[in-house]
């Protein structure tokens, strides 16, 4: 017998110890720097999330360049509606102060669909005290207009009762 009876066990233990030491240092080396600062996570991830760019920039950012539409919208019954809901995200339109794309403007039937997202009385779940709803096409019939009319033929979308009230005033109805 050339080797002592416990030689293999000693070599094995040495190998295991080396393995554990390497593992220990590898864990130290590869763990992200800010990990564990506030808890079991990478603290830098908080600022990374906080720095995510905004894509919807709220109505005041639209007003700057579109004062006409905004003037009506901000004073009419639709003042609580976000421009970006109907037209799309600001970030798809402007980047670093420059126009990078055109946001879609809805037309005719699209407008009716859009209006009925909120104003369709067939959806009974809408609380009456919150929103004024209509039944289609009964509303068109009652107003004695063509049933093919889209909503914007009577209602200016940015301020729905603006022109209606205006014409009523002229006719002395109010």
């Amino acid at each position: 017998m050339h080797t002592p009876h416990n030689a293999h066990v000693k070599r094995l233990l040495a190998a295991l110890i080396i393995l554990f030491v390497i593992g220990f240092f590898a864990k130290q080396a590869f763990q992200p720097k800010s990990f564990g600062k506030y808890g079991h996570y990478r603290a830098d991830a908080i600022m990374e999330e906080a720095n995510r760019p905004m894509r919807l920039m709220t109505n005041p950012s639209c007003v700057k360049c579109h004062p006409y539409e905004a003037g009506h919208q901000m004073t009419g019954l639709h003042k609580t509606i976000s421009c970006e809901f109907c037209h799309g995200a600001y970030a798809d339109h402007i980047k670093d102060g420059k126009k990078i794309g055109t946001l879609p403007v809805k037309r005719n039937a699209e407008i009716t669909t859009l209006c009925l997202r909120c104003h369709n009385r067939a959806i009974e779940a809408r609380p009456k005290q919150v929103i004024k709803t209509v039944v289609m096409p009964d509303h068109l019939r009652a107003q004695k207009v063509d049933e093919k009319h889209s909503c914007n033929q009577c209602h200016y979308v940015h301020a729905p009762l603006k022109y209606i009230n205006h014409s009523k005033k002229i006719m002395g109805l109010i």
């Binding site: 017998m1 080797t3 009876h5 030689a7 293999h8 070599r11």
Partner: peptide, 11 residues
């Protein structure tokens, strides 16, 4: 075998 061929009774 970790380089050991000792298969004596003690081992």
């Amino acid at each position: 075998t970790f380089g050991s061929d000792n298969v004596g009774p003690k081992s």
